[in-house]
Design a protein around this nucleic acid. Structure first.
Lengths: 145, 145
DNA sequence: CGTTTTATATTGATATATCAATTATATTTG
DNA sequence: CAAATATAATTGATATATCAATATAAAACG
C-alpha cells in the first residue's frame, strides 16, 4: 500500500516526461539558433506577449527563483537579446525590452517551439490532453497546500 | 490550430507540476535531514535497492548526465553518505556503498518520501493515475523518437 | 598480439537552481 | 513626517545541468 519505490511512481514519470521534452526541445532549437537555451526562449516569448512584466512576475511564470532570473537576464542583455532600463514609476524595477536580434530570434524559434509541442503530443486525443491537464492541476493544487 | 503560447500548453503544466512537487519534497525532507537534496535522496534509495549499479546506470535512472552524477557522488562521499571503491572486475567502474550514516538517513527519509507522494496524489483515483501514466508514457516515447 | 573501437568516468567551462543575506526603493503606520 | 515594514532585485555561496574534451580500461578485430 503505497510503499512503492519512487522510481515506480507516476511522479517519477512526470519528471521523466519533462526531461525528455526539454531534451528534444533544446536539440531542435540549437539547430536553428546556436547560443540560446530553451529557458531563455521562454523568457523571450513571455516578454513578447507582455513587456510590462517585472522580473518577479517573470520568475513566477517560468517557475524560477528571482536570483536565477537576474542572472538569466544579465546574460541575455550581454548576448544582445534584451535591453534593460530603469523603471521610472518604481525605481526598484526594470523595463525589459526585446532587441532587434531578440525579435529576429523569436521568428526563428516560434515554428520550432510549435513543432516541439506537436511532436511531444503526437497521437494524443483532445480528451487525453484535457484529462492530463485536469490531473496535473490537481497535483499542483495538492502540492501548493 | 496549435498556435498556442507555450505557457498555455499541457507541457508547461507538466513542468509546473514537477517543480511544485520538488519544492514540497525538498521542504519536507529538509525538516528531517538538514544537509541532503531530494536528488541525493533518490540516489540513496536506488542504491539501497541495488548496490551493484554503475554510475552510468544511476545517471540514467535519475535522468542526469554522467558529469552530474560524478559530482553528486563526490559530494555524497564527502558528506559520508557513500563509500566509493574501485571495482575489481572492471577497473573503469566503482563500487558504491551506502554508509551507516546513509542507512540511518534512509530510515528517516523513507516515510517522508512516502508522505510526499501521498500528498501530491491526494484525491486522485486509481483510474486517473493509470491514465496519467499512460499519457506520460506516450509523451516520453514521442520525444525519444 | 597490437591496433582500433567502445565503454566508463572525470574535468573544464558555462548556465542555471536555490537559499540566505543584502541593497535600494516604496508603502504603511504610529 | 519618521520609523517600521514590505517589495524588487542583486550578490555570495554552493549544488546541479550540460556539452565537449580527455583519460583510462575493456572489448572487438584484423
Amino acid at each position: 500500500m503505497n510503499n512503492k519505490n519512487p522510481t515506480a511512481t507516476v511522479l517519477y514519470l512526470i519528471e521523466h516526461a519533462i526531461k525528455e521534452y526539454r531534451k528534444i526541445s533544446q536539440r531542435n532549437i540549437s539547430k536553428i539558433v546556436k547560443d540560446i537555451t530553451i529557458d531563455q526562449c521562454l523568457v523571450l516569448i513571455i516578454l513578447n506577449k507582455d513587456d510590462k512584466i517585472s522580473q518577479n512576475e517573470l520568475a513566477n511564470l517560468v517557475f524560477k527563483d528571482n536570483a536565477s532570473i537576474t542572472r538569466m537576464i544579465e546574460l541575455m542583455v550581454k548576448k544582445d537579446y534584451l535591453n534593460r532600463t530603469i523603471h521610472q514609476e518604481d525605481r526598484r524595477k526594470f523595463n525589459l525590452e526585446i532587441t532587434e536580434k531578440g525579435k529576429k530570434t523569436l521568428e526563428l524559434i516560434n515554428p520550432v517551439a510549435k513543432l516541439n509541442r506537436k511532436t511531444a503530443l503526437n497521437g494524443l486525443s483532445l480528451e487525453e490532453i484535457n484529462l492530463l491537464e485536469k490531473t496535473l492541476n490537481k497535483i499542483i493544487t495538492n502540492c501548493k497546500i
